[in-house]
Design a protein around this nucleic acid. Sequence first.
DNA 1: CGCGAGACCTGATAGC
DNA 2: TGCTATCAGGTCTCGC
Length: 285
Amino acid sequence: MVYMAPSIHQLQDAWMPELPEVETLRADLDREILGHSFMQAEVIQSRMTRGQGLEEIAHRIRGQVVRAIGRRGKFLLVHLSSEDTLLLHRGMSGNILLELRRDPVKEHQHMSLELDDGRFLTVYDPRGFGEIRVLDPAAVAERLALMGPEPLGPAFSAEYLARRWASRTAPLKTLLLNQSMVAGLGNIYADECLWAAELSPSRPAGAVSLAELATLRHRIQEVLSEAIECRGTTFSDAMDLYGRPGTYQHHLQVFHRAACPRCRGQIQQIRVANRGTSLCPACQR
DNA sequence: CGCGAGACCTGATAGC
DNA sequence: TGCTATCAGGTCTCGC
């Protein structure tokens, strides 16, 4: 069966919360709301709270000062003066926006937090695959316990990948998307990194040499760093804290492209790990 | 335990 | 135009 890639138009209203997009959000929040307090908190829907009560979440946010903003993989962590942490995940379609005034609650709005200067931090997520919870330090640690190393951190090495992937038969891409192997890669950046490393997404992970893993690790760090500099990937809709797009979509080399920029061959669309996958069959082995 | 398929949702689009 | 089928950037769980 042939997997037909959607046209670029089908992606127009999509926004992509992988590591670079969440990191952009973290840095902006750090600049904008660090040291501010939440005067009011309203949690509107229960779909993303994993059973935590709406009023409990609101109560634990209300009156708290923002002590630090962190990120782990695709999780955004707003550390509060109470020692609690507001844990946010954008899922497939979540947007977190800083708004200058109070607007009526919109469709798909999940949360509205009023800051001490009259601005509002709001969360929208049509598909509701994201997560909104307030957790104590032990619960945060438990939630993040299985996450692999940060790809831009010191623990992420070729030797680490070799150890974790030894004798694994799953496709490379499947394990790159597995957050317990490495934290923060999603479908777009997995494809981009594999193209940059000239590795096939369907190669059994255990069959990749240490030298190839070293290249892969290096390319992952390059791709993510450049994407962060570009404030992430956006096709047209709002994406950062201010509703503005990133620019990395102009730097994509393989994801949903027609021709390979390296060899001019045709980009192939297949399915790996049940996900649409773009690759250059000539370059990627 | 590792692996793959399907589920969870809503919205956009292509095709009839 | 209005229906249906298919697709979507992320996890999570289930069965083999």
